[in-house]
Design a binder for these strands. Structure first.
Length: 606
RNA sequence: GGCUCCGUAGCUCAAUUGGAUAGAGCAACGCUCUUCUAAAGCGUAGGUUACUGGUUCGAACCCAGUCGGAGUCACCA
């Protein structure tokens, strides 16, 4: 009786055949947990059968109810309301559910084939520290890794580090111009923040230069001849900034020269690049550690940015891609509802798309990954659509296993984060704030272990983010995220802690509980626990750790109420105590395990 | 403007994929600690699921249109 939903479906199909002599498939039936306000544990919805069986839903429900009750001992009672058939399951059934859970510590895990899966997440640029957007990415990536692994998949965690390009050159340039040989140590700063400061410095100096240029005759003439005459000066120059950087800017020129030198393997440039990147990596490492994540393999863009060219060459030969007169190479994706995409510039250098092709190929060769999950923000939806369509177009064996786990942007209550306006929430700052908040709250109670405080603060932060459906944009309210009450990580931790507190005081119990009849709350808790597997399976199928978060919260909430209503250690009978001790132990384990899938740790006390 | 996604209580989010009277938390108000941890529990109040129409036994969910928001449409990543 491992899968009660299947059992119910089976007996219903059997019943329909017996009574109506008609074959139906499991897809024709819907079995759901019974709504709390009605009596029963599971509900069979019969409306969809009405047409095929030529009878009204209440009649069908009644006859099926009779049949099921007659033929299955584990159904103790049935009730028909409209076309809903509510089934109550027997005490024996619930008792056996508890026993199965006790004897199978992995009862909550869905089972899948050990398919090889790669999860790519985090994937930062090396010119500045991690921020709130990365945190959502990292937590989603980590939870995805954990839930796939728990379901039996062979999962590898990777990130691609965007360690080259114009952005890091900006930091490098500003540091070499204005840095006077400062180091993170001499400046007393976390090393990735230190590098970020130089990026900011570049932007500041560049803005100054740009502003000054706007006053020149050259700039004014361009402004006068603008296509969109309705634009104000400020609006026009805001849009023109990128173009200015690439054409007139001296600093832009210097940065681009630096990039060229880097590509030409200029020794000094490479040395500077290595130095600054090593600072950034040291900083990232600390942040990852605080977030409790690690990786199996790091890919560096500096190693991969030339990949993919042979695929393109091959594709041109096979007429999958085409060459324009100027020598650039393109792919036509109009058949897939997309447009033409560039793959190789006319000078033969590659673009982002090119290396993505190469990297996917490389990963398939290295890991034999049958599925690659890219955790990347939804602003890149189109890019991945094109990428996957393209890979499919040349018939790569791994094409069908590619998935873009697209998540929505994190916004602040006052709107979008903008680095230019300094409204970006830094990852390290945020972590400090939530831990500080946990510490303040703890000091009002009793003095607590710093490690417990850390767990509580991180739980608040992580749960706040991971409980939201990844696909949706979310608003991150810093004040609400440090909340320790209500629908939060610490609320769930508190349920766990209360269980541990009881278990610490519990005597060794040898009494059986066979004669104990569980009450409604206990049946509900067991019901929830036995659903855990389906929840995680849905989370895996939908790539949504939020489902697990919502499950864990619902379980904790139900437990808190149960805790309030029922005594475990001072139960009315030894059988009741035996039953409840087993039950709460399972609940505790389940909370621990499901929260672990989200990267959230449980303290023993709080 | 084209394409994609979104719109649920004052705020942040759910809703078992088309099922019963749309649920939680926060904020507000009122209760409950000599009790296994009150970071908790209980109650009150809060909704025309943006709007209009359609599909059907049944719609927050599917279809059409309208309004509002976001993303994207780079020889950037």
């Amino acid at each position: 009786m491992t899968d009660i939903l299947k059992e119910i479906t089976d007996v219903a199909i059997e019943g329909v055949k017996e009574i109506y002599h008609i074959d139906i498939s499991p897809d024709d039936l819907l079995v759901t947990p019974t709504k709390k306000e009605h009596k029963g544990d599971f509900t069979l919805v019969t409306f969809s059968l009405a047409k095929a069986l030529r009878q009204s839903p209440p009649q069908i429900a009644a006859s099926l109810g009779d049949y099921i009750k007659r033929s299955r001992t584990w159904v103790s009672d049935t009730e028909v309301i409209q076309g809903f058939l509510n089934l109550s399951l027997s005490t024996d059934y619930w008792s056996s559910v508890l026993e199965e859970m006790i004897h199978d510590p992995d009862y909550w895990k869905p089972v899948h084939n050990p398919e090889k899966v790669l999860v790519e997440f985090s994937s930062p640029n090396t010119n500045k520290p991690l921020h709130l957007g990365h945190i959502r990415n990292i937590l989603l990536g980590w939870a995805t890794y954990k839930m796939f692994a728990a379901s039996g998949y062979d999962v590898k965690r990777v990130q691609i580090v965007n360690d080259r390009g114009i952005a890091i050159c900006k930091s490098m340039l500003a540091w070499s111009k204005f840095g006077n040989g400062q180091t993170p140590e001499s400046a007393g700063m976390k090393s990735d923040h230190f590098v970020g400061e130089w990026y900011v410095r570049f932007e500041k100096e560049f803005s100054k230069e740009y502003l000054a240029w706007q006053q020149t005759d050259e700039a004014q003439e361009i402004f006068q001849n603008r296509k969109e005459q309705e634009l104000s000066s400020a609006e026009f120059f805001k849009n023109y900034k990128n173009h200015y950087f690439n054409t007139y800017s001296l600093m832009g020129l210097e940065a681009k020269e630096m990039l060229l030198k880097w590509e030409a393997h200029d020794a000094d440039t490479l040395q500077l690049w290595k130095k600054m990147n090593s600072w950034v990596y040291a900083g990232f490492e600390q942040t990852y550690k605080k977030l409790g994540v690690e990786f199996d393999k790091l890919y560096y863009e500096s190693d991969t940015y030339l990949l993919g060219k042979d695929i393109i060459e091959e594709g041109v030969k096979r007429n999958v891609f085409y060459k324009k007169d100027d020598g650039s190479i393109w792919v036509d994706l109009t058949a897939q509802g997309l447009d033409h995409k560039l793959l190789l510039r006319k000078d033969g250098t590659s673009v982002y798309m090119t290396q993505d092709l190469g990297t996917a190929e490389k990963r398939y060769e290295e890991f034999g990954a049958e599925r690659i999950i890219y955790v990347v923000g939804d602003e890149q939806n189109y890019h991945f659509q094109a990428l996957f369509a393209m890979i499919a177009s040349y018939g790569a064996p791994y094409a069908k296993g590619l998935y873009h786990l697209s998540y929505g942007m994190v916004e602040l209550p006052e709107g979008k984060m903008k680095s230019r306006e300094g409204t970006v929430v830094d990852a390290d700052d945020l972590i400090d704030v939530v831990i500080k908040e946990a510490s303040d709250a703890a000091s009002e109670r009793e003095v607590l272990d710093p490690d417990i405080i850390r767990k509580i603060g991180m739980a608040a932060l992580k749960f706040f983010i991971v409980k939201v459906d990844p696909r949706k944009r979310m608003v991150f309210d810093p004040k609400a995220s440090v909340d320790l009450q209500g629908q939060t990580g610490p609320y769930i931790q508190n349920a766990y802690v209360r269980i541990q507190s009881i278990l610490r005081k519990a005597p060794d119990v040898t009494t059986g509980h066979a004669s104990y009849e569980p009450n409604e709350d206990e049946k509900l808790l067991l019901n929830m626990l036995s659903h855990c597997r389906q929840v995680i399976d849905s989370a895996v199928k939908e790539y949504s750790p939020a489902l697990i978060a919502n499950y864990a919260y619902a379980l904790a909430k139900e437990y808190h109420r149960y805790y309030h209503d029922v005594k475990v250690l001072h139960a009315e009978s030894p059988e009741a105590m035996a039953f409840r001790l087993k039950l709460i132990r399972i609940i505790g384990q389940n909370i621990l395990q499901t929260m672990d899938l989200l990267g959230i740790e449980m303290p023993e006390r709080m």
